[in-house]
Design a protein around this nucleic acid. Structure first.
Length: 198
DNA sequence: GCCAGGATCGTCT
DNA sequence: GACGATCCTGGCG
């Protein structure tokens, strides 16, 4: 498994959101495989950049591959990966991970509970990984972060799309991406009409 | 198992 | 002064 490079994040935010599924995200001693993401771009009323550049969202307008971290509901830090070329404000919200390393440390930070719940939500995984506001604007391609490319056994697996979660604006846009069958997503994806039984 | 309500604070109007 | 890209708990069945 090797690390992603800057060009990975320089593409369309939707492509990046889809391709991040199956990649491993490490922060310090902890790591997990990304199983759920959401895409936000500047044409999207739900995106923080929609209203224009402000002190809070300026990282979104910067170069790709950086972490955009902000506080939600005054309690939770949410982690995004900035995508698209500098000047184009877009980001991928990391919504859920399948824990792979540092699980004991995650438990210590998050308390007891089944492993499926350690990182099954955007606020949960930042707590488990130790990501907070001080990391806003830092580089995802440099310590303490590391993002590795999708493992070989993920290639060929489908990525499902569904409506986004927890927002009131443009919630109908199907810009949530998740790994079908994963027990680690924040919520089950909507049942789709039986297309093909694999 | 499901649902309603509360916690808590930076950012913008 | 209002509002979240959320999570947890408690009450009820």
């Amino acid at each position: 498994m090797s690390g992603l490079d800057r060009s990975f994040f320089e593409r369309s935010v939707h492509q990046v959101a889809r391709d991040l599924i199956g990649c491993e995200l490490a922060v310090g001693e902890t790591a997990g495989v990304i199983v759920e993401t959401e895409a936000y771009d500047a044409t999207d009323p739900a995106c923080h950049a929609y209203i224009g550049k402000t002190a809070r969202n300026e990282v979104l307008f910067g170069p790709p591959g950086q972490a955009y971290v902000y506080l939600s509901y005054g309690i939770h830090s949410l982690l995004n990966a900035v995508a698209e070329p500098e000047g184009s404000a877009a980001a991928v919200l990391i919504r859920a991970l399948e824990p792979t390393e540092g699980i004991e440390l995650m438990r210590a930070r998050r308390g007891r509970g089944p492993i499926e719940d350690l990182c099954s939500g955007p606020g949960k995984l930042t707590e488990a990984l130790g990501v907070g506001l001080p990391l806003n604007g830092s580089d995802l391609l440099a310590p303490p972060f590391e993002v590795c490319e999708r493992a070989a056994d993920w290639n060929g697996r489908e990525v499902s799309t569904s409506p986004r979660i927890g927002i009131t604006k443009a919630a109908e846009l199907p810009w949530r991406y998740s790994a079908p069958g994963s027990r680690y997503v924040s919520r089950p994806w909507p049942v789709v009409p039986a297309e093909r039984a694999a």
